[in-house]
Protein backbone atom coordinates (compact mmCIF):
# COMPACT_ATOMS: atom_id res chain seq x y z
CA UNK A 1 0.00 0.00 0.00
CA UNK A 2 2.85 2.36 0.80
CA UNK A 3 4.39 1.54 -2.60
CA UNK A 4 1.12 2.33 -4.31
CA UNK A 5 0.83 5.63 -2.45
CA UNK A 6 4.35 6.51 -3.53
CA UNK A 7 3.48 5.70 -7.12
CA UNK A 8 0.51 8.07 -7.00
CA UNK A 9 2.58 10.84 -5.48
CA UNK A 10 5.28 10.42 -8.11
CA UNK A 11 2.59 10.64 -10.78
CA UNK A 12 1.55 13.98 -9.30
CA UNK A 13 5.06 15.30 -9.83
CA UNK A 14 5.25 13.81 -13.32
CA UNK A 15 2.04 15.50 -14.39
CA UNK A 16 3.41 18.80 -13.13
CA UNK A 17 6.60 18.34 -15.15
CA UNK A 18 4.57 17.34 -18.22
CA UNK A 19 2.62 20.54 -17.80
CA UNK A 20 5.86 22.49 -17.88
CA UNK A 21 6.71 20.70 -21.10
CA UNK A 22 3.52 21.33 -23.03
CA UNK A 23 2.26 24.55 -24.58
CA UNK A 24 -1.29 23.23 -25.08
CA UNK A 25 -3.85 24.61 -22.69
CA UNK A 26 -6.51 21.94 -23.14
CA UNK A 27 -3.90 19.31 -22.38
CA UNK A 28 -2.87 21.35 -19.35
CA UNK A 29 -6.38 21.29 -17.92
CA UNK A 30 -6.64 17.54 -18.58
CA UNK A 31 -3.31 17.06 -16.84
CA UNK A 32 -4.57 19.06 -13.89
CA UNK A 33 -7.62 16.83 -13.67
CA UNK A 34 -5.37 13.77 -13.81
CA UNK A 35 -3.11 15.23 -11.15
CA UNK A 36 -6.06 15.85 -8.86
CA UNK A 37 -7.22 12.28 -9.41
CA UNK A 38 -3.80 11.05 -8.35
CA UNK A 39 -4.00 13.32 -5.31
CA UNK A 40 -7.39 11.84 -4.46
CA UNK A 41 -6.09 8.27 -4.83
CA UNK A 42 -3.09 9.15 -2.71
CA UNK A 43 -5.43 10.50 -0.04
CA UNK A 44 -7.38 7.26 -0.24
CA UNK A 45 -4.19 5.27 0.32
CA UNK A 46 -3.30 7.37 3.36
CA UNK A 47 -6.84 6.89 4.60
CA UNK A 48 -6.57 3.11 4.27
CA UNK A 49 -3.13 3.11 5.84
CA UNK A 50 -3.98 5.21 8.86
CA UNK A 51 -7.67 4.35 9.00
CA UNK A 52 -8.84 7.93 9.45
CA UNK A 53 -12.48 8.43 8.57
CA UNK A 54 -12.00 12.14 7.83
CA UNK A 55 -9.67 11.31 4.96
CA UNK A 56 -12.31 9.22 3.18
CA UNK A 57 -14.52 12.28 3.08
CA UNK A 58 -11.56 14.35 1.97
CA UNK A 59 -11.08 11.86 -0.88
CA UNK A 60 -14.67 12.39 -1.98
CA UNK A 61 -14.36 16.18 -1.76
CA UNK A 62 -11.21 16.17 -3.87
CA UNK A 63 -12.84 13.99 -6.52
CA UNK A 64 -15.90 16.20 -6.59
CA UNK A 65 -14.20 19.60 -6.61
CA UNK A 66 -10.81 19.14 -8.20
CA UNK A 67 -11.37 16.29 -10.62
CA UNK A 68 -14.84 17.14 -11.87
CA UNK A 69 -16.15 20.64 -11.17
CA UNK A 70 -13.09 22.87 -11.59
CA UNK A 71 -11.84 21.29 -14.86
CA UNK A 72 -15.41 21.40 -16.16
CA UNK A 73 -15.62 25.14 -15.58
CA UNK A 74 -12.18 25.69 -17.06
CA UNK A 75 -13.12 23.77 -20.21
CA UNK A 76 -16.30 25.80 -20.47
CA UNK A 77 -14.39 29.05 -20.23
CA UNK A 78 -11.81 27.84 -22.71
CA UNK A 79 -14.55 27.12 -25.20
CA UNK A 80 -15.89 30.65 -24.83
CA UNK A 81 -12.60 32.44 -25.37
CA UNK A 82 -11.32 30.09 -28.10
CA UNK A 83 -7.65 29.74 -27.49
CA UNK A 84 -5.58 26.66 -28.20
CA UNK A 85 -2.01 27.06 -27.14
CA UNK A 86 0.40 29.18 -25.21
CA UNK A 87 1.76 31.92 -27.42
CA UNK A 88 4.06 33.79 -25.17
CA UNK A 89 6.59 31.64 -23.33
CA UNK A 90 9.19 33.51 -21.35
CA UNK A 91 11.13 30.26 -21.12
CA UNK A 92 11.27 27.72 -23.96
CA UNK A 93 9.91 24.19 -23.55
CA UNK A 94 13.26 22.34 -23.17
CA UNK A 95 14.54 24.94 -20.75
CA UNK A 96 11.47 24.79 -18.57
CA UNK A 97 11.62 21.00 -18.36
CA UNK A 98 15.27 21.23 -17.41
CA UNK A 99 14.40 23.90 -14.88
CA UNK A 100 11.63 21.72 -13.46
CA UNK A 101 14.16 18.92 -13.06
CA UNK A 102 16.58 21.11 -11.19
CA UNK A 103 13.79 22.39 -8.96
CA UNK A 104 13.04 18.78 -8.04
CA UNK A 105 16.68 18.24 -7.19
CA UNK A 106 16.68 21.38 -5.07
CA UNK A 107 13.57 20.25 -3.20
CA UNK A 108 15.23 16.94 -2.48
CA UNK A 109 18.21 18.71 -0.94
CA UNK A 110 15.94 20.94 1.16
CA UNK A 111 13.76 18.02 2.25
CA UNK A 112 16.73 16.01 3.47
CA UNK A 113 17.83 18.95 5.57
CA UNK A 114 14.46 19.78 7.05
CA UNK A 115 12.82 16.42 7.65
CA UNK A 116 14.36 14.64 10.58
CA UNK A 117 11.20 13.56 12.29
CA UNK A 118 9.19 10.68 10.89
CA UNK A 119 6.38 11.61 8.56
CA UNK A 120 3.81 9.14 7.33
CA UNK A 121 5.52 8.32 4.06
CA UNK A 122 8.96 9.70 4.67
CA UNK A 123 10.74 12.62 3.10
CA UNK A 124 9.81 11.53 -0.43
CA UNK A 125 6.39 13.14 -0.08
CA UNK A 126 7.91 16.35 1.19
CA UNK A 127 10.26 16.43 -1.80
CA UNK A 128 7.43 15.85 -4.21
CA UNK A 129 5.16 18.39 -2.60
CA UNK A 130 7.86 21.05 -2.54
CA UNK A 131 8.90 20.31 -6.13
CA UNK A 132 5.31 20.47 -7.36
CA UNK A 133 4.89 23.72 -5.49
CA UNK A 134 7.96 25.23 -7.12
CA UNK A 135 7.03 24.00 -10.60
CA UNK A 136 3.58 25.52 -10.18
CA UNK A 137 5.21 28.81 -9.24
CA UNK A 138 7.52 28.53 -12.25
CA UNK A 139 4.52 28.01 -14.54
CA UNK A 140 2.93 31.14 -13.15
CA UNK A 141 6.05 33.21 -13.67
CA UNK A 142 7.14 32.04 -17.11
CA UNK A 143 3.80 31.92 -18.89
CA UNK A 144 1.82 34.95 -19.84
CA UNK A 145 -1.46 33.36 -20.86
CA UNK A 146 -4.08 33.79 -18.16
CA UNK A 147 -5.09 30.13 -18.37
CA UNK A 148 -1.58 28.89 -17.73
CA UNK A 149 -1.43 31.13 -14.68
CA UNK A 150 -4.60 29.55 -13.32
CA UNK A 151 -3.15 26.09 -13.93
CA UNK A 152 0.04 27.11 -12.13
CA UNK A 153 -2.00 28.34 -9.19
CA UNK A 154 -4.02 25.13 -9.07
CA UNK A 155 -0.81 23.10 -9.18
CA UNK A 156 0.49 25.03 -6.17
CA UNK A 157 -2.74 24.29 -4.40
CA UNK A 158 -2.46 20.57 -5.14
CA UNK A 159 1.05 20.58 -3.72
CA UNK A 160 -0.21 22.08 -0.47
CA UNK A 161 -3.00 19.52 -0.29
CA UNK A 162 -0.44 16.76 -0.79
CA UNK A 163 1.66 18.15 2.03
CA UNK A 164 -1.39 18.58 4.24
CA UNK A 165 -2.69 15.07 3.67
CA UNK A 166 0.63 13.34 4.17
CA UNK A 167 2.05 15.32 7.08
CA UNK A 168 -1.01 15.47 9.17
CA UNK A 169 -3.51 12.83 8.09
CA UNK A 170 -5.61 15.64 6.73
CA UNK A 171 -6.64 19.01 8.04
CA UNK A 172 -9.86 19.18 10.06
CA UNK A 173 -12.73 18.50 7.72
CA UNK A 174 -14.41 21.86 8.16
CA UNK A 175 -11.21 23.64 7.17
CA UNK A 176 -10.59 21.38 4.21
CA UNK A 177 -14.10 21.92 2.91
CA UNK A 178 -13.75 25.66 3.31
CA UNK A 179 -10.45 25.65 1.46
CA UNK A 180 -11.90 23.67 -1.44
CA UNK A 181 -14.94 25.91 -1.61
CA UNK A 182 -12.78 29.03 -1.67
CA UNK A 183 -10.68 27.47 -4.44
CA UNK A 184 -13.77 26.79 -6.50
CA UNK A 185 -15.00 30.35 -6.01
CA UNK A 186 -11.59 31.69 -6.99
CA UNK A 187 -11.61 29.68 -10.22
CA UNK A 188 -15.13 30.86 -11.04
CA UNK A 189 -14.21 34.49 -10.52
CA UNK A 190 -11.00 34.15 -12.48
CA UNK A 191 -12.78 32.57 -15.44
CA UNK A 192 -15.36 35.34 -15.32
CA UNK A 193 -12.56 37.89 -15.49
CA UNK A 194 -10.89 36.03 -18.38
CA UNK A 195 -14.10 36.24 -20.37
CA UNK A 196 -14.46 39.95 -19.59
CA UNK A 197 -10.85 40.74 -20.44
CA UNK A 198 -11.30 38.94 -23.74
CA UNK A 199 -14.48 40.87 -24.39
CA UNK A 200 -13.35 44.32 -23.34
CA UNK A 201 -10.15 44.36 -25.34
CA UNK A 202 -8.28 42.25 -27.80
CA UNK A 203 -4.95 43.96 -27.47
CA UNK A 204 -3.81 44.06 -23.88
CA UNK A 205 -0.55 43.13 -22.29
CA UNK A 206 -2.41 40.24 -20.75
CA UNK A 207 -3.63 37.56 -23.11
CA UNK A 208 -6.65 35.51 -22.25
Amino acid sequence: MVRLAELFSVLILISAVLNAGSPFIKFGIKLYSFQSLMLALYTLMVALYSNTSALYLSFLFIILFKVVIIPYFLFNTLKRVEIKREIDLALGIPESVLFAGSLTLLSNIIAERVIKTTVTFGSLIFTISLATFLIGAMLMITRKTLFSQIIGFLTIDNAIFLAGNSFTHGMPLLVEFGVLFDLLAAVLILSLIIIHIKKSSLKTGLRS
Binding site: M140, L146, Q149, F153, A186, I189, L190, I193, H196, I197, S200, T204, G205, L206
Partner: peptide, 9 residues
Amino acid sequence: YEATWKYVM
Protein backbone atom coordinates in the same frame (compact mmCIF):
# COMPACT_ATOMS: atom_id res chain seq x y z
CA TYR B 1 -10.38 43.91 -15.08
CA GLU B 2 -6.60 43.81 -15.25
CA ALA B 3 -6.37 45.15 -11.71
CA THR B 4 -8.81 42.48 -10.56
CA TRP B 5 -6.84 39.76 -12.26
CA LYS B 6 -3.62 40.86 -10.62
CA TYR B 7 -5.36 41.24 -7.28
CA VAL B 8 -7.02 37.82 -7.21
CA MET B 9 -4.01 36.01 -8.63
